[in-house]
Write a protein that binds this DNA or RNA. Structure first.
Length: 230
DNA sequence: ACCCAGGGCGTTG
DNA sequence: CAACGCCATGGG
């Protein structure tokens, strides 16, 4: 937390969101394995669509590493059509469970013991697993401290003037990790609050992602010059 | 009929 | 490396 002002602002924004929306209780899943499947299925699709796909996998008794490892791709993709890009996502699920067995004997508890930077590098090497998905797995399934960045995070905090447009994932991630205490609970709920904000913003104000924060956070100003059409 | 959701990869210039 | 096209559902 080298820059006190930035730390103060970020903590202040979180505090306001927490007061207003309450702890989001992420990730919405029964098990860490379900969380991981969820991170794959929710790529560029609404959670509603991803959730349906997970429910279908459950009903088909497929939501299990061993079962999935021995399932045909078509068998998996049939159950996850609602999640969009279902063929690619079936492949990603298959890729992960094969990785889980080859590296950790199919045991997530062993994966969690891995050194964080090494685990991150290994997961990033899997086809279809980019930074956001990998960090979501590490934070929400492994409960290890890494800050997750998504398009909402970039959009919202860019408009607060925290960084320039078209910034790299790592730049945004550093903003949070350098200025917030390294706390899994905080990382967990902060990202959840941002997503919640992104999901609910349009209902509050159709043209400005910042207004809800601004409305509840006097003193933290929205840069309207940067506001464009959603 | 639009629009866009809790991305990532491969291919261009 | 940025700017695309591609993948290919469902709710508003």
């Amino acid at each position: 937390m080298e820059n006190y002002d930035t730390s103060k602002k970020l903590l202040s924004i979180y505090s306001i969101l927490l007061d207003r929306y309450g702890n989001r209780g992420w990730w919405p899943a029964d098990t860490p394995f379900e969380t991981i499947i969820g991170t794959i299925l929710t790529q560029n699709v609404s959670w509603n669509n991803a959730k349906k796909a997970i429910d279908n996998l459950k009903m088909a008794k497929l939501l299990d590493p061993y079962i999935l490892k021995n399932s045909e791709l078509g068998c998996i993709s049939r159950q996850i059509i609602s999640s969009r890009y279902y063929n690619q996502k079936a492949q990603k699920i298959s890729t992960f469970v094969q990785f889980l067995y080859s590296e950790y004997n199919g045991n997530l508890d062993l994966m969690v013991l891995e050194d964080l930077p090494i685990l991150r590098k290994k997961l990033l090497s899997l086809k279809g697993f980019g930074e956001e998905t990998v960090d979501s797995i590490i934070l929400y399934a492994c409960n290890l401290p890494i800050f997750v960045v998504d398009s909402y995070t970039k959009r919202i905090f860019n408009r607060y003037g925290f960084f320039s447009e078209n910034c790299q994932y790592s730049e945004v991630q550093c903003l949070f990790t350098l200025h917030l205490p390294k706390d899994v609970k905080l990382y967990n709920d902060y990202h959840a609050q941002i997503v919640n904000l992104g999901n609910s913003i349009c209902k509050i104000h159709p043209t400005c992602y910042l207004c809800p924060i601004r409305a509840i956070a006097p003193g933290i100003e929205c840069e309207y010059s940067k506001v464009r059409k959603i």
